[in-house]
Amino acid sequence: MPHDHHDHLSPSGHPYRQDNDGALTYWQTMEIAIRELMIEKGELTPAQIQEQIDAMDARSPANGAAVVARAWTDPDFKKRLLENGSDAAREMGFDIGPMHLVAVENTSDTHNLIVCTLCSCYPRNLLGLPPDWYKTREYRSRAVREPRAVLREFGVELPESTTLRVHDSTADMRYIVLPARPVGTENLNAEDLAKLVTRDSMIGTGLPKAP
């Protein structure tokens, strides 16, 4: 049961999912068995597995926010980002892997939204693991059918005159939204601008914070 522990909230404010203290499940048993077999057969070491977990834990929306803030303050970088998102992100030192990253720009008259209707493809190397709602039937189905209604559920009301583009990701090609720079931020540097960039603003279900 995914939500047994609503009375115990983690530091992030989310309920803990049943973990080490719950009854061992069939699928947890399978994970342990696979891991131990791979180690016994010399496929992987425990250290390699832990390093991969640590690398994934270290990826967070802060990485994407740094890329966005750089694009807001460095027109040449922004041009490179829109031309080739993977190379521009690599230029900042982020490990993008083989993923083809496409940055799509929000402007005063255009808003972009990303989804993966087929599964859960997400720019995980830049934003970390996707939020649970991104993987739900409801979001996957409706983001391409009634995106304005979906955005309203996230508290985003777009003017009717705004063009809304919805981008459907694939396993090999993943989008990230370059949000529009908020007004009144002319005097902020990249570091302070990055603090305004939320995860949802890079998915398109949110807007950057006001300064």
């Binding site: 939500h3 973990d19 080490n20 209707t117 709602w133 409706r142 391409v144």
Partner: peptide, 16 residues
């Protein structure tokens, strides 16, 4: 994609 469905569930959890 394009199917009818209900409101997006906003529940979230920390990964175990």
């Amino acid at each position: 994609g394009g199917d009818a469905a209900g409101p997006v569930p906003m529940d979230s959890h920390d990964f175990a």
